[in-house]
Design a protein around this nucleic acid. Sequence first.
RNA 1: GCCGAGGUAGCUCAGUGGUAGAGCAGCGGUUUCGUAAACCGCAGGUCGUGGGUUCGACCCCCAUCCUCGGCUCCA
Length: 637
Amino acid sequence: MVNIKFPDGKTIEYPDGVTPFAIAEKISRKLAKSAVCARVNGILTDITTPLSGDVELNILTDDTPEGLEVIRHSTSHVMAEAVKRLYPQAKLAIGPSIEDGFYYDFDVAEPFVPEDLPKIEKEMAGIIAEKKPFVRIEMERGKAIEMMKSKDEPYKVELLSEIKDDKISLYKQGDFTDLCRGPHIPNTGKVPFFKILKATGAYWRGNERGKMLQRIYGTAFATKEALAEYLNHLEEVKKRDHRRLGKDLDLFSTHEEAGAGLIFWHPRGAMIRYLAEEFWKKEHLRHGYQLLNTPHIAKDSLWKISGHLDFYRESMYASMDVDGMKYHVKPMNCPGHILVYKTKVRSYRDLPIRWAELGTVYRYERPGVLHGLLRVRGFTQDDAHIFCEPSKIDEEVLRTTKFAIHILNSFGFSEFDVSIGTMPEKYIGSPDIWKKAINALENALKIIGISYTMEEGGGAFYGPKIDIKIKDSLKRAWQCSTIQVDFNLPERFDIVYAAADGTLQRPIMIHRALVGSLERFFGILIEHYGGAFPMWLAPVQVIIASISEGNVAYAEKLAEQFRSEDVRVETDVRNERISLKIRDAIAEKVPYILIVGEREEQNNMVSVRERNKGDTGQVPVQDFLKKIREESIFRKG
RNA sequence: GCCGAGGUAGCUCAGUGGUAGAGCAGCGGUUUCGUAAACCGCAGGUCGUGGGUUCGACCCCCAUCCUCGGCUCCA
């Protein structure tokens, strides 16, 4: 007999060799139907594995995260079988479940083309209809290697030869056998609602110099609704794509003539940038920073001292000749700030010095990685460098982190993922000094009470860092803030301050960016708001639309009045119907549309149409102005 | 950088070895209109760029630039 302990604490006896599935059937038909796998004494297993001894049992249904993962993993096996049926020459690599779905990598002579995907989907449907059981097979590693050799699956052989255990497991459905830890769903008929999404290239084991394989991505969900919802979500993401909205809303462009990854800000985009910059500068001044401006190019001697020519060369553009000397476009602002520091003797009384600059830098990014505003070659960092006494490092990191969160909050973000990056392989400075810095970062985060993760090896070459990722309205995470301690540059540039005891001491430097880069953050903002910017950032806050020719003068008079009060207003006095003007203004995602005709003109009123609310009726002009004046100040989206 | 897909009018897209198309936007006219598309007309393209094959290339081939989906990278 086996004693089964259930999650609710009850223990029931079953005959030896009973399977979780049989137990589920006993409990209810519904449970048996939705059961996907089981957790037996904490270990995920097949639902068909016989049980013995005393076990704690969790039956996992298709609506649990583990259940869904198993479903997706099994679907990847089904897809692999389908591919092998259609393309017998294909070699299998790996096929895990991932967030939101799964993929499988194949080595095929001809890359998959989009037309292949429906064929594969159809084949999968056939396999699913066959309801073939997933059978777990355990065997000696050597035997498995033999088997995969005989099947001519070199990638599986390679994987097997690296596994430490002698006993390995395989899963078989019909004639298709794959190396796999499991668990799996009981049979292929249990694959619920799936979709193949795309085929791409991917390196074997992620190695750039390795073989390029072909990867097929797909997803699967327990219910039709969940799949539909996910596909819907993908549509929503597409609709909010900043490249799409950037074009539709006339915010920015890139140009083949100018080069890849170089952004041109159009009037409306530039207005949003101006508003963001203005806010950013004011907040910095309020938080104890001073502003700096430094040049875009500098002689290679500067980059030699900073170490960039040694450590950052791949990301720097080639030098240009100026009077027989080599100059480089700057990839970072820090050396410039240090030069300013060095212009006079600094006292401990001057510290901390906090210098901020919206500094434009240029970095070489490989052509394949460029992406709209999110990955570019020229961008403006919202940079700052803090020079402080070593004893003040905790305090400054704390301050900076709080400030970062304040700024991000102001732009409408309130969820964060925080991590600390530790010493990478390529680094400068002593390990001891690194340890100290990491402690400082951890202390600061502990004091604030933010939870964080450690990213081993995730630091910059010159020091450890705190990274803050924001979550946008679609729950996607974006790296924005970074706070980096630097024990190294002060050393390289030999910067000092006069301490209280009259000795010269080395300050600590903290590099930090809050929104990261203006280009990237702009892209994030566009997607976060779906182009519908809050009042304080909206490039056009109000469109005044005239009903007919007779009201044009009134519309323009109002616009002039609004403009004099710093309202960002435009008029639409085209010879068009009001419904067309409303339609166009809605497409531009303008917060307020004011409709003015005879009725409004006579009483000095406006008819208000609010974004997302529709027609909200007539109000006196002064009332409307008062309302939007207040809204324009309000931040946090 | 690697694998794949793509680049035709301002935008979205059709076309396919034999004279380059539509809708929207633009411009002109008519209409003067009350909350998500009035009507008529006009104009707009060296089909990303450079070579090649061909009697003839938007179409086929090569190179190159740019974009997209991934991989890799991301101080």
